[in-house]
Design a protein around this nucleic acid. Sequence first.
DNA 1: CTCGACAAAATTGTCAACAAACGGAGCCGG
DNA 2: CCGGCTCCGTTTGTTGACAATTTTGTCGAG
Lengths: 224, 224
Amino acid sequence: MTESAADGQPGERSVVAAIRDAIVRGEFVPNQRLVEADLSAQFAASRATVRAALIELTNEGLVERVQNRGARVRAVSLEEAVEISEVRMMLESLCAAKAAERVSDAEVGELKELGELMHQAVAGGDVVGYSGLNQRLHRRVREISGQRTAAQVLERLRGQSVRHQFRLAMRPGRPQVSLPEHLAIIDAICAHHPERAAEAARAHLGSVIEALKAADAEVSPLHP
Amino acid sequence: MTESAADGQPGERSVVAAIRDAIVRGEFVPNQRLVEADLSAQFAASRATVRAALIELTNEGLVERVQNRGARVRAVSLEEAVEISEVRMMLESLCAAKAAERVSDAEVGELKELGELMHQAVAGGDVVGYSGLNQRLHRRVREISGQRTAAQVLERLRGQSVRHQFRLAMRPGRPQVSLPEHLAIIDAICAHHPERAAEAARAHLGSVIEALKAADAEVSPLHP
DNA sequence: CTCGACAAAATTGTCAACAAACGGAGCCGG
DNA sequence: CCGGCTCCGTTTGTTGACAATTTTGTCGAG
């Protein structure tokens, strides 16, 4: 019933991007049914195109499809978010170590500047700006690592947990906790110190996991 | 032109399984073009079904698709195989640690029996039997760990690297090297010792990476 | 003889329509 | 009044055909 979609050109790959954006932006809420005909009308594309897009998004973990019963936005539970963060802990530490080995002088400058910007964003209370810089940092580390396989997996997982990530970033005091962790990762990579970089990444993701559990405990204070 | 496919029922999900099997079994060789119409005829399914299957297999990393230029079997280079093994090293160590925490008494017996079977297979020179037990062990560890996210990722990666895995298993002396590594993983899990299990898994995958590089160096002896 | 452009074939992307399956509303019988 | 059954609406799964794009083969000019 909510027809608020902005349809660009009805291209083929645009549809997956459009639906993906609608999901990560929260326009489509978890467990919402995704009827092919409706999406077809919303995005001005054929049903076959929408169908292909849904299949693709299913393998990306953003939507759930059951035989003859349609597709719906996949709801990632807290438990799953923790699992995802555990996997990220392993893979981001791998990427951080690789990045520390391969980082170039130009990239060192780039990372340090990114760290400075993050510092300023936190000091200025710009939470959403800090969140964006956060994503940029993690992506840049993945790119520098040259580990395309790990980078691909991490990218997929990011899409699934973006909602929890966002909820986390909004918690008061969270940026002050994560900023030094991020700076530690940057320092270790720029110092060409793989083991310290891996350890810093592990510590950061461990902190994320703890914060996830804490945030959940706060929302549902008692569990009898 | 090679029409050797055994077509079961033309169901929808059967087609992805059929094509996947054809790829991992080597019936479709790397870089082979996958024309939708041909597959449609081979598997007695509509072109749309084949198309959906190809999209699904693309996200599984088994086929490569480019705009308006069709799909082909993805060829995983040695470099990519090493990358995959590095990711596996991180995730399997995670799963091994989790499994060591959660393993039940019945599962301990099961794992020990599996270890015994592997020992016998190596002693009897049953390479292919050992390879199958190898897969069973890794999958069982993933299941026991309860880390469904990591298990999913690992399953996807297994499909991509099955060809290299197989080549490795065929190397003379390889089973004698990997057997004690597998037994060490089993022992650590059964002893409820997470850190030792993780370390054993890391060591095993490290050995796999070394063997991959060695096998490549043997095939292409000089690299000027 | 080689290089460039044009035309034809092949292949993919897209669309609209048909058939099958699931879910629920309403009806009938106990 | 309640349980089970049937019928109907909705949604997905599938099919076939059409349009757009790329690739290949051929012809002519330099």
